Simulated scan of single mutants.
Amino acid sequence: MVEQRHAPARLLVTDDNKVNRLLMTRSLELQGHTVECAENGRVALEFLRSAPFDLMLLDMEMPEMNGFQVLEQLSDDPKLRDLPVIVTSSLEGVSNIARCIELGAEDYLHKPVNPVLLKARIDSSLEKKRLRDQQKEMVRRFATSEVAQDLQQSGFALGGRRVHATVMFCDIRGFTALVESQPPEETIELLNTYYTLMFDAINGHGGVVNQMIGDGLMAIFGAPLPLEDHSAAAVYAALDMMEMIELLNVERIAAKKTALRIGVGIATGEVVAGYTGTHQRATYTCIGDTVNLAARLEEHTKVAKRGILIDPATCIEIEGRIEVEPLGPAQFRGKSAPVEVHAVAGPAPT
């Protein structure tokens, strides 16, 4: 059987016994690892918070801060809680072992530590860390930074919570006709350009794009992470989106291509935001009357011949800071009473 080899790692040996530190360091360096040493828990935490490590070997009985206290600190720190820790201790008793595991330790080895067993446990822990790191990278790649941060801080759980937020819907006017008039490759390139510009404007004002369907998108301002003045942030983002589309149109017209027009609907209020789906496949989204209203306002931009429409709650939040035009009441599907609609100053869709 071929021995599985692992890439060298950066390890931290934490033990108040100098002889133990030296012998452990020599053994680990012979395996190809880079090793740093700490004589107690306080020094170990200073190391961990100043530079990245792949794994820590931790003694329990130390002055100033013992191993249990170190594990408690690690479990409370989102940046360090996933660090693999192998406890090496002379403490006996199932209760001590159980407490270490409950506090997040990967393994518990009694002193004197068998070097063959230690190598196997280190290799196994590093492999688990590699897989966890790959998982985090996938989350960062396919989720927004805010959702990734929410997952790291709160963990994953299906369900939602009530939050006060602002919801935005946006799509390209006349997209179906545009698609029919050009090759599929050109449409894909157009969508990639469109989303690049829209994401930049939305993310630049603290919003999170959580849905993309064809040429349409949905964004949330104020969830999953709180956002101060989220109504104004959404409107400023919409104005930036309009400006970017106009700049893009200069290039498109020069290339004898059809100019783009977008419609944006924005509503503010209570939503239920969270992860929906299954444990195998889920997405972060929000539901509620505010979401429905934002979607209806986006649709109404075609009727109102305005680029950005907002609801009364958003209008109140931005009062005096952004120029708006009252358009009067509109009756929307699913609403029992008409809604007062306001247009934000900006180019109107055709």
Score class of each variant (00 low, 15 high):
276 T>M: 14
260 L>E: 04
231 S>Y: 01
249 N>I: 01
282 A>D: 00
298 E>P: 00
255 A>T: 01
242 M>H: 13
243 E>W: 04
328 G>R: 10
242 M>L: 15
276 T>W: 07
257 K>E: 14
265 G>E: 04
315 C>F: 10
329 P>A: 09
278 T>P: 01
306 R>Q: 15
250 V>M: 10
321 R>Y: 09
287 I>Y: 12
288 G>N: 03
322 I>M: 06
273 A>M: 02
249 N>M: 06
295 A>G: 14
280 Q>Y: 00
277 G>H: 03
249 N>L: 07
248 L>P: 00
272 V>H: 04
234 A>M: 09
232 A>I: 07
240 D>L: 11
254 A>D: 14
291 V>T: 09
327 L>P: 04
322 I>Y: 06
246 E>Q: 13
318 I>N: 07
274 G>P: 04
240 D>R: 05
292 N>L: 04
330 A>V: 06
295 A>L: 04
229 D>L: 03
305 K>Q: 15
306 R>M: 09
266 I>K: 02
255 A>K: 12
252 R>D: 10
323 E>R: 11
288 G>D: 08
256 K>A: 12
296 R>L: 11
311 D>F: 10
273 A>T: 02
319 E>N: 08
283 T>Q: 06
257 K>L: 12
297 L>E: 06
329 P>L: 09
236 Y>L: 14
310 I>V: 13
231 S>Q: 12
314 T>H: 07
